[in-house]
Computed example of a mutant assay.
Amino acid sequence: MCRLLGVVTRKSAPIAELLAEDLDPFLELACEHKDGWGIAFRDELGAVSIVKGTDRADDSDLLRSLLKSCVTDMAVLHIRMASPHLAVSTDNTHPFGDARAAFAHNGEIRPVTSLDALISPSLLATAVGTTDSERYFLAVREQMDQGSPAAPAITRTAQSIRERAEMVVSLNCMMLTPDGLFTYAEHDPHSEVIGRRGPGYFGLSYRQEEHKTVVASQGWPQPRPQWRELPASHTAQFTTTDLQPRIH
Rank of each mutant, 00 (worst) to 15 (best):
T54M: 13
A57E: 08
V88M: 08
A82L: 07
I109R: 04
D73H: 14
D73C: 06
D55C: 05
A99T: 12
C70P: 03
T54R: 13
P84M: 05
S89F: 14
A57R: 12
L67A: 07
I79M: 11
E108C: 05
L66T: 00
S114D: 09
V76E: 01
A101E: 11
D98W: 11
L115A: 09
S60K: 10
D73T: 06
N106F: 06
A57G: 04
K68N: 14
P95V: 12
K52W: 05
A57N: 06
S83P: 03
L115Q: 14
H85G: 00
A101P: 00
T93I: 08
H94Y: 11
L77A: 04
L66I: 02
S69K: 13
R56I: 04
D61A: 15
P111E: 00
H94N: 02
D98G: 03
F96H: 11
T113C: 10
V71I: 15
K52T: 01
T72M: 07
A99C: 02
F96I: 10
V71M: 02
F103L: 08
R110L: 13
P95Y: 07
L86S: 04
V88S: 11
K52H: 12
L77W: 08
D91A: 15
T72F: 08
A99V: 11
T72K: 04
D55S: 13
L77N: 03
T72C: 10
D98I: 15
M74T: 09
A102H: 06
A99K: 15
G53K: 04
P84G: 02
T90A: 12
D91K: 13
T72Q: 04
L62S: 05
A102Q: 07
K68F: 05
M74I: 01
V71K: 13
M81S: 00
H105D: 00
S114V: 02
T113N: 06
H94M: 10
